[in-house]
Each structure stands twice: as structure tokens, then as C-alpha cells.
């Protein structure tokens, strides 16, 4: 399997947002999703565009323009979709993150992931 470029944290967030949104992934929804993921940090629309452009240049995602809609002043939406290369890059990032989580949990115990009970770090003396 060919090697893929390693992703930055924000790139991972944007790719995950595109994956989660499916066929509804365009500028505004991606920005909202990324902001939801990175709470309490706020995310600007401009930063999302820059990352989307970069990911598209790397061939990790592709985009196309929809038909114009009246609620947007008669302007089109640019929809984004994950490409095979993007899926692979995201999988690699997640595998790395899982390894990190496992290593940290071995020392600190279960991490406070949403849905789990309160985090009780185990201190080793």
C-alpha cells in the first residue's frame, strides 16, 4: 500500500466532519461540525476553506458545485466528498490516535471520552 501524507489535527477534524456529514458536506455545515468537534474552541469559516483547499490539492477530497439556491442569494454550494486517499489517511491517523489513547490509558486509566463516566486518573508513585 502506498504511503499517505500525515495529517495535521485540523485536517483530521475537517476530514472527519466531511465523513460524518456525508452528502451534506459544504462550507457552512463543515465549519459547524468542526466547531462541534473542537468545543469549546471556535473555528472560523476562513480556516476551514484554507484546509479544504489544501486537502483537495493533496487529492484527499474532491468537490463539485451544486445548483444555485434562493436562500443563498442564488449562489451554488461547493460540496465535498472524501476520496480513497483521504479515507486511508484518516484511517492511519485514527490508528495512531488509538495507539496513543491505549498508551495513555495504561498509565492514567480510562480517559474522559463523551458518554463515559467521570475520569479518575490513576497516579503511579
Amino acid at each position: 500500500m502506498a504511503k499517505t501524507d500525515s495529517l495535521g489535527q485540523f485536517e483530521q477534524l475537517v476530514l472527519t466532519a466531511i465523513l460524518a456529514l456525508g452528502d451534506k458536506a459544504y462550507g457552512v455545515t463543515i465549519q459547524e461540525k468542526v466547531e462541534e468537534f473542537s468545543k469549546p474552541k471556535s473555528v472560523s469559516l476562513g480556516a476551514v476553506y484554507v484546509t479544504l483547499d489544501r486537502l483537495e490539492d493533496k487529492g484527499l477530497i474532491s468537490s463539485w458545485l451544486s445548483d444555485p439556491t434562493p436562500e443563498r442569494g442564488g449562489r451554488s454550494k461547493r460540496y465535498y466528498r472524501l476520496e480513497g486517499l483521504g479515507e486511508r489517511a484518516l484511517q492511519e491517523s485514527l490508528t495512531t490516535a488509538q495507539r496513543m489513547v491505549a498508551a495513555v490509558e495504561e498509565v492514567w486509566g480510562a480517559l474522559p471520552i463523551p458518554g463515559r463516566k467521570k475520569w479518575k486518573p490513576i497516579r503511579q508513585n
Partner: peptide
């Protein structure tokens, strides 16, 4: 990128 950025800002 004019078309979609203006649309997103309008939305």
C-alpha cells in the same frame, strides 16, 4: 471561489 464563499456568507 467567489460563488460558494459568497453563498456561504449569505447563508
Amino acid at each position: 471561489c467567489r460563488e460558494h464563499v459568497l453563498g456561504d456568507l449569505c447563508e
